[in-house]
Deep mutational scan, measured.
Amino acid sequence: LVRYRTISKIPQITLNFVDLKGDPFLASPTSDREIIAPKIKERTHNVTEKVTQVLSLGADVLPEYKLQAPRIHRWTILHYSPFKAVWDWLILLLVIYTAVFTPYSAAFLLKETEEGPPATECGYACQPLAVVDLIVDIMFIVDILINFRTTYVNANEEVVSHPGRIAVHYFKGWFLIDMVAAIPFDLLIFGSGSEELIGLLKTARLLRLVRVARKLDRYSEYGAAVLFLLMCTFALIAHWLACIWYAIGNMEQPHMDSRIGWLHNLGDQIGKPYNSSGLGGPSIKDKYVTALYFTFSSLTSVGFGNVSPNTNSEKIFSICVMLIGSLMYASIFGNVSAIIQRLYSGTARYHTQMLRVREFIRFHQIPNPLRQRLEEYFQHAWSYTNGIDMNAVLKGFPECLQADICLHLNRSLLQHCKPFRGATKGCLRALAMKFKTTHAPPGDTLVHAGDLLTALYFISRGSIEILRGDVVVAILGKNDIFGEPLNLYARPGKSNGDVRALTYCDLHKIHR
């Protein structure tokens, strides 16, 4: 019993810090008490220290592992850092350059016999395009090294910054494609005289377009951006097909006994025919423009016929181009109408809503002055909100995010209106959640004399007048207030005048 009563005193000691020596009952000389009392004092002292730490809000209350900052290894790049964003855009520009100039170089340097010394005699450094290609190869190699040090988000939505895990993730992902696209074939085969082989191998750079397509997928929600990307894709495919079309004609031209190829026909049409040795002929500019003209006309199913396939190889390629053109029509131009419709969806919704308003007016036989006010209010409210119901949009977000959005939407009023000066951010967040926005066209009466005042109004834009009878008592403008002081009276009061809008007004109100 003594032991039980001794232990039962522990909660009292913990909360009230009572010393055991003052209790005459606990001072009985028993061996059990002498053993338990020192333990009680020690526990009391420890609990006292913990309570003191909690009340003082000291940093040592938290466990040590929670006080440590997340460790980022040296030379690790955050995937959302500004440097990584700028670097990704730079790589994107280099990939676009590669997609345009690599097929052009591979096709127009394929057994090209233009006048001038061969590239091997001039030297590697004197070729501007080769120098640019070398810079692109170096940048792609540097990009691989950067990807080995860039964080990523795993399946659990955690940012991984450990170098080993980053390397394994990159090896399992895009490393092989990036490595093949970054191989400097110019340096590996330079001086061997195989410019045709170098041009063909350099087309491996186009593998990076797969990554670019995935990154550009984030802009699919913007109709104008999608339309622009589709047109660029169409032009890029036409450019690639033009390079292939020229390569076919250029390879067949020296081996044909009869002059029936499209390059021969082009030379005869523009007065620059090929001679018996295969030299001469149109310039590279004429060849490229004509090839691009043929691919565009074939892809769009126009086909004027002034550039036509004559050999079997050219006919087979033309059939493939027609098939590609039909697929592009289905996948690209078939979506253009939907994209344009999405661009004008706001206008369509406006006309639909206006039609419903006019049908309501016609069905209920609203008189002319009231009908005009109804239409003007709808037009003004639509121009202010673009038909978007803010309350319906915010309803799907958590309250903390709703408060931040409301604070942002009402920031101008909260910053410049005098009653809100000096208020804490928590108070402003709470008030912003209570605001209701209303609009009024010129001549609209917001409050009639004798109406119950259940709200306090803040003028965000425009001006109003307060009338008693036919006498203008006051004219209020931006950041002015009218209405009933909230919670100042037990019952809502009545208006002693009319409140009429002089201009288009936007008002925020808080109800009782």
Rank of each mutant, 00 (worst) to 15 (best):
K418T: 05
P254K: 15
M179C: 14
L431P: 02
A182G: 13
Q127E: 04
N275R: 04
W89C: 03
E196N: 15
K285N: 03
T290E: 01
E115C: 07
I183M: 04
D444P: 01
K84Y: 04
L355M: 12
L241P: 01
G426V: 02
R259T: 12
G303L: 01
Y219H: 07
V168M: 11
N154L: 05
T295P: 01
V131F: 07
Y288A: 01
G278Q: 03
S345C: 03
P117Y: 06
A167C: 05
E195I: 15
G426E: 08
L134H: 05
N386F: 06
E375M: 12
T102Q: 01
T98P: 01
N410F: 09
M433R: 11
I284P: 01
G346F: 03
F234H: 01
R371G: 07
W87N: 01
S308N: 05
L236G: 01
A181C: 03
Y329W: 03
G278S: 04
N368H: 14
Q379T: 07
L409P: 02
D88F: 01
L188N: 10
Q365R: 11
V131G: 01
E121V: 15
K66R: 11
Y219C: 13
V357R: 01
I405A: 02
N410S: 09
Y65E: 05
P163T: 05
W240R: 01
L413A: 07
F304C: 10
A348L: 15
H73C: 05
A403F: 01
I138R: 01
L209W: 01
P442S: 05
H73Y: 10
A423W: 01
T113W: 11
L409C: 03
I324P: 01
D178W: 01
A330H: 15
I189M: 12
S331L: 06
C427Y: 01
F108A: 01
P282I: 01
V226H: 03
A392H: 15
L227R: 01
W75A: 07
L188Q: 06
S308I: 03
D444C: 08
A238I: 04
P117E: 05
L67A: 04
A432F: 05
P70G: 14
R165Y: 07
Y65K: 08
T445Y: 12
A238T: 04
I366W: 01
I260K: 05
F333E: 03
E64Q: 15
M251C: 01
K84D: 01
A403C: 03
M322F: 01
I270Y: 03
R362K: 13
V132S: 03
H169R: 05
P273M: 01
L200P: 01
S308F: 01
M231Y: 12
F378M: 12
L93C: 01
G199E: 10
F397R: 02
L188R: 14
E359D: 04
L188F: 13
D444Q: 07
A403W: 02
R421M: 10
W245H: 01
Q415F: 14
M433G: 04
A432W: 01
T437R: 09
G223W: 12
L292P: 01
L241A: 01
W75K: 04
A224I: 11
W240G: 01
E196L: 10
T113N: 14
N156C: 11
Y170Q: 01
A238V: 03
S277K: 03
L129P: 01
D178Q: 01
D257V: 05
L409S: 03
Y293M: 04
L110S: 15
G249N: 03
D268F: 09
A224P: 14
T233D: 01
D88Y: 01
N386W: 04
V86P: 01
V302S: 04
I177V: 14
T385Y: 14
Y288H: 01
Y293F: 11
P273K: 04
L229Y: 05
L207G: 15
T113F: 03
T385C: 01
G199Y: 03
C400Q: 01
A449T: 15
G422L: 10
E157C: 14
M322I: 03
P369V: 03
V302R: 03
D133R: 01
Q372F: 11
P367A: 08
T233Q: 05
S337K: 04
G249I: 01
D178T: 01
I77Q: 01
L428V: 07
D178G: 01
P254Q: 15
K66Y: 15
M322Q: 04
A242I: 01
A381V: 10
A181R: 01
K202D: 01
M179I: 11
M139A: 11
G223Q: 06
C417F: 09
D257K: 13
W87Y: 02
G334E: 03
S313W: 04
K434H: 10
T290Q: 01
K425R: 09
I198W: 11
N410G: 03
P82H: 07
L431H: 01
V100S: 01
Y344C: 10
H408A: 01
F185L: 09
S194C: 14
S301Q: 10
G305T: 01
M251L: 11
N391W: 05
W174G: 04
L263I: 05
Q341H: 14
T295N: 01
V336M: 10
E157A: 14
A247T: 05
L299I: 03
L241G: 01
Y329L: 15
I248K: 01
A449L: 07
I284Y: 01
L374I: 07
S337T: 11
K66G: 07
V159R: 03
A119D: 01
L187R: 14
H79M: 01
K111C: 03
P163D: 01
I270A: 01
L327E: 02
S277F: 04
H73S: 07
M433F: 08
R362M: 01
Q402S: 02
Q253M: 14
I91L: 01
I72N: 03
N312I: 03
I405G: 02
L446G: 02
P282S: 03
D286T: 01
F108C: 01
L323Y: 03
G123W: 15
L323I: 07
A338N: 03
L207D: 01
A291R: 01
P82E: 03
L67T: 13
I183P: 01
V180T: 13
Y384R: 11
L209V: 09
L200C: 12
A224S: 05
F234M: 13
Q269R: 03
S383M: 10
H448G: 09
Q353M: 03
Q365T: 04
R71C: 09
S283F: 01
V212I: 04
P369T: 04
N312G: 01
A204G: 10
L145R: 01
N250F: 04
E121D: 15
W262G: 01
E115G: 14
N275G: 03
V131L: 14
T300S: 03
Y65D: 07
L428N: 03
C417W: 09
V336A: 01
G123V: 08
N335V: 03
L374H: 01
T437Y: 12
I237M: 13
I198D: 02
L279K: 15
I324Y: 03
